[in-house]
Write a protein that binds this DNA or RNA. Sequence first.
DNA 1: TCTGGGGTCCTAGGACCC
DNA 2: TCTGGGGTCCTAGGACCC
Length: 419
Amino acid sequence: MTLFALVDGNSFYCSCERAFDPTLRGKPVVVLSNNDGCIIARTQEAKDLGLKMGEPWHIASKRPGLSSVIWMSSNYALYGDMSRRMYEVLSANAPAVEPYSIDEMFLDLTGVPDPLLLSHRIRDLVRQIAKIPTCVGIGPTKTIAKLANKAAKSYRSGTGVCDLSTEDARAAAYPGIDISDVWGLGPASGTKLARRGVTNVAAFVALPQDEVRELLTVVGARTHAELKGVNCIPFSQTPPTRKSLAVTRSFGRAVTEKRELEQSIASYATRAAEKLRRHGLVATAMQVFVRTNEFNKDPKYFNQATFDIEPTSDTLSLVKDALRAGRRLWRPGFRYAKAGVVLLDLARPQERPADFFPSIDIEKRARLMSALDSVNMRYGRRTLTLACAGIQQGWSMKRQKLSPRYTTVFDELMLASAR
DNA sequence: TCTGGGGTCCTAGGACCC
DNA sequence: TCTGGGGTCCTAGGACCC
């Protein structure tokens, strides 16, 4: 039986700022996005004043009663550094750590004698050493651990640790947890489920698997299984190589001159190339896009170009490629609000393309190979061929095209590859 | 000739996450 | 006037092929 914990920094960016400026303690603080546009982190005191995540600051700050709010521009170098400190404390004290985001890390606590005790200890250590307050959620799957973490955060007078590792604990908690608190179920899924009268986790878990798959596709079905304690999302200490990398910005004001747009694109391409080098990767395709403001009444224009590039390109030729594309996308008369450069199909230069399952990482490929071997004994070559194609392109599309007698092999393979 | 089943590759867009 | 910047995965559908 697996057991995971999710450690999540409370109001992470704000807590980082507080670690370096103790006078911020006990005060409402918000951290703002680039150009000081939106709220991207809030302390509890700021939340209590009704400030919302993602709210444009120029609107929110004008509301009455907010004069005590301290706002700060974001400092990602600092947050990245604090994240590394948190990771170091965790990896020194837990059997295995998987960083999930800048402020969240999964722990594999399988086989730990007293997971609850260890969670409390780790939480204390992170606060003492890395100066970051956290909450911890415990569960047999990642989705349950995430849910437990959310619960730990919502009980403000609680201990900061919530354990949903037992069926009894889940049975008691699920009816009181809203669907929107589930990792993987967003607003669109919430609306679909609400139409069927499903608004809490207990009701969702009670739905038949087929119905969930029909309504929410394989993604929803996986979340459904995870909430029932069936492990579908693997734990990995080494994250897979990323697949794309982007540098995009909203302009501070509308851009109407071609020269100015070109300068932006050139600068984004340079920064994208720097990121690429820093990660030790090469790219084989590039995308450049430009767009007008989505929110105001300006005439709308969006365009993008995606094209192959030489994996050996140096920064200068990447910039030239991006500029050429940018000039093609330019249309006079529009007020441009945003542009970006995206590098695609990233790979480590030393890796040779795999001869089988080219789009799948090595670990997953190995799992699939053994899964295929076992079903091949029972299903024959044609099914195998279909399944291979299905795996590469995404399961569901192929599954739908298959006659019912083939769908079972798909589901079997999906479960096998998830383990 | 017509019809059908199968399959590949590509793109746009949706949904979700932090 | 001002509205973030990253990411991943899945689905649908067109164009094309045998």
